[in-house]
Simulated scan of single mutants.
Amino acid sequence: MKAALMTAPGEPDVLQLGEVLEPTIQQETEVLVRLKAAGVNPIDTKLRRRGTFFPDRLPAILGCDGAGIVEAVGASVRQFQPGDEVYFCNGGLGGHPGNYAEWAIVDARFAAHKPTTMSFAEAAAAPLVLITAWEALFDRARLQAGQRVLIHAGAGGVGHVAIQLAKWRGAEVCTTVSTEAKAVFVRDRGASQVLFYKDTEVAQAVMNWTHGQGVDVAFDTVGGAALGQSFAATKFYGDIVTILDADPATNWKLARTRNQRVSFELMLLPMLQGLMAVQQSQAAILQQCAELIDAGHLKLHVGQTFPLAEAAAAHQAIESGSTTGKLVLVMD
Rank of each mutant, 00 (worst) to 15 (best):
124 A>E: 13
147 Q>R: 05
249 A>D: 14
259 N>K: 06
136 A>L: 02
272 L>F: 11
327 L>N: 11
74 G>K: 08
91 G>Y: 00
82 P>D: 13
182 K>H: 12
213 Q>G: 02
40 V>D: 02
1 M>K: 11
41 N>F: 08
65 D>A: 04
118 M>P: 06
245 D>H: 15
161 V>N: 08
149 V>P: 01
244 L>K: 15
145 A>N: 14
117 T>V: 14
204 Q>A: 14
53 F>L: 15
182 K>Q: 14
139 D>S: 01
14 V>T: 14
270 P>Y: 10
52 T>E: 09
96 H>E: 04
145 A>I: 10
174 C>P: 00
225 A>I: 01
104 A>G: 01
159 G>E: 09
262 V>P: 06
125 A>G: 15
91 G>N: 03
275 L>S: 11
84 D>M: 07
172 E>K: 00
301 H>I: 05
42 P>R: 09
284 A>Q: 15
168 W>Q: 14
2 K>E: 14
194 V>S: 13
219 F>P: 07
260 Q>Y: 05
180 E>C: 03
155 A>Y: 09
154 G>I: 00
279 Q>K: 15
80 F>Q: 00
158 V>I: 15
130 L>P: 07
290 A>C: 08
305 T>F: 06
89 C>Q: 15
93 L>H: 09
105 I>P: 00
285 I>K: 08
39 G>P: 00
301 H>Y: 11
27 Q>W: 10
127 P>F: 06
254 L>Q: 13
213 Q>L: 05
128 L>N: 13
264 F>G: 15
160 H>E: 04
321 G>L: 09
294 D>E: 09
307 P>V: 01
273 Q>K: 14
176 T>V: 04
71 E>N: 13
138 F>T: 08
201 E>G: 09
215 V>W: 00
180 E>N: 13
169 R>T: 08
212 G>E: 10
27 Q>A: 14
60 A>G: 11
280 Q>A: 10
278 V>E: 13
329 L>W: 12
78 R>E: 07
96 H>D: 01
240 I>S: 03
244 L>G: 11
183 A>L: 12
32 L>K: 07
182 K>W: 08
65 D>C: 04
262 V>Y: 10
166 A>L: 14
152 H>A: 04
66 G>R: 03
204 Q>T: 12
253 K>G: 14
135 E>D: 03
168 W>C: 12
101 A>R: 08
139 D>F: 02
229 Q>A: 07
162 A>C: 08
55 P>A: 11
150 L>F: 07
225 A>S: 06
121 A>T: 14
187 R>V: 07
51 G>C: 06
127 P>T: 02
173 V>C: 09
83 G>R: 06
178 S>A: 15
238 G>T: 05
229 Q>F: 01
99 N>C: 12
194 V>K: 09
66 G>C: 01
111 A>D: 09
210 T>V: 03
